Simulated assay, not measured.
Amino acid sequence: MMKFTYKFSLLVFILLSIFSYAQEKKQFSNVSTILQNIIPNIKTDFWVLIHKNYGKDNVIKQSGAVKDYISQSSGFNIGIAEEDEFYYIVYSSGGKTEYITNLDGLKKFIGKVDDIQDAAIFATTEGYIIDEEFRDIAGNYYEDKSNYYLDLGKLTSKECPYQKKHFTLTVSKSAGTITNVKDNGSYIELYNKKCTNNPRLLKIEKKEEHKDEPKKSTRSTKRK
């Protein structure tokens, strides 16, 4: 009986260890690394991933013998980007040079979701972002046999207040689609002086209103 109990306990421990390992979250390294892991869904003569920052082209990845191409003035981002910063892809298929400068084109270039990098890129085409500054809540993932689980952010307002929320997305490995979205709430909410709905500003205005109100007379009237 003791031998059976020992074996059973050992089996439970192993299964729990495997489950815990499978649930361990890993952070995405950075946007460039994710994009470098792209495997095109089409046959290409060559393809090159370019990061353009303040007018300067930096080749991030090159596959095949690259021919002359035209530097692009716009592109895509899958994370929080600085102003005048974006990525674009140049590729040749059947001798014809093509350019990818938006997320829809990137999605078609990747095709089916084959790994976690593809899943992350696919999610960004649906409006989510990999927030490198807050990877603990909006830039990590884990997976099991059936799904990828990604914690990503989304810019929900550029107006007052500037706001970012974070979500947990379930991406099916077999279908390559998002099957569930869990809203985890806001993790950034920024107000500035121009925001009419700034809580701090409203408190100040309320105090000023009270100051301007005429003081009530405290003098009592005597009865005759």
Rank of each mutant, 00 (worst) to 15 (best):
G139E: 05
I42C: 07
A22G: 05
Y88E: 09
I38A: 08
S32D: 14
N197T: 12
D136R: 08
A81S: 14
K173E: 06
L152F: 03
F167P: 00
N197D: 15
Y99T: 06
G64Q: 09
S174M: 08
K194D: 15
I18N: 06
D136S: 14
K211C: 07
Y21Q: 10
A65Y: 04
F46H: 06
N58Y: 06
P214N: 01
S186E: 15
T168K: 08
I204D: 10
I100N: 03
S32R: 12
I137R: 04
L169M: 07
L152A: 05
R200P: 00
D151M: 02
K108T: 14
W47Y: 12
M2H: 07
A120C: 11
F167Q: 01
E143M: 10
L190V: 13
I130M: 06
N198V: 06
I78A: 02
K222S: 13
A120E: 04
L169R: 01
K25P: 05
K173V: 05
N192M: 09
K215P: 07
Y149V: 02
Y87S: 05
Q72D: 06
I100S: 04
A123W: 02
Y88W: 09
Y87F: 15
A119S: 07
E209W: 07
T5F: 10
K206W: 03
S174Q: 15
A120S: 13
M2A: 10
G185K: 13
Y162D: 11
Y21I: 12
G75C: 04
H166W: 10
Y187R: 01
I18R: 01
D212E: 15
K26Y: 14
I18T: 13
W47H: 03
K224V: 10
D212I: 13
T125Y: 00
T218R: 13
I38G: 01
Y191I: 08
F86S: 02
D144Y: 09
W47A: 03
A123Y: 00
T218Q: 13
Q36E: 15
D131A: 02
G176I: 04
G185D: 09
S217C: 11
I110S: 00
K203D: 14
E132F: 00
I204N: 07
S172R: 09
F8R: 12
D183N: 14
S220I: 12
I42N: 06
K107I: 00
S174Y: 08
E85P: 06
I100R: 08
E132K: 01
Y6K: 13
Y149F: 15
V12E: 06
S20F: 13
I80C: 07
L155R: 14
D212P: 02
T33M: 12
I116M: 01
A123E: 02
T124N: 07
S9N: 09
I38F: 03
A119E: 02
I204S: 11
Y21C: 08
Y148W: 13
A65P: 03
G105W: 07
E159K: 15
L150R: 02
T221W: 11
F13N: 08
L155Y: 03
Y87H: 14
Q117C: 10
G105V: 10
V59L: 04
Y141G: 00
A120W: 00
Q117F: 12
L10Y: 10
N184D: 10
I116A: 00
D131K: 01
K108G: 04
T124E: 05
I129E: 06
D115W: 08
V171S: 06
N180I: 01
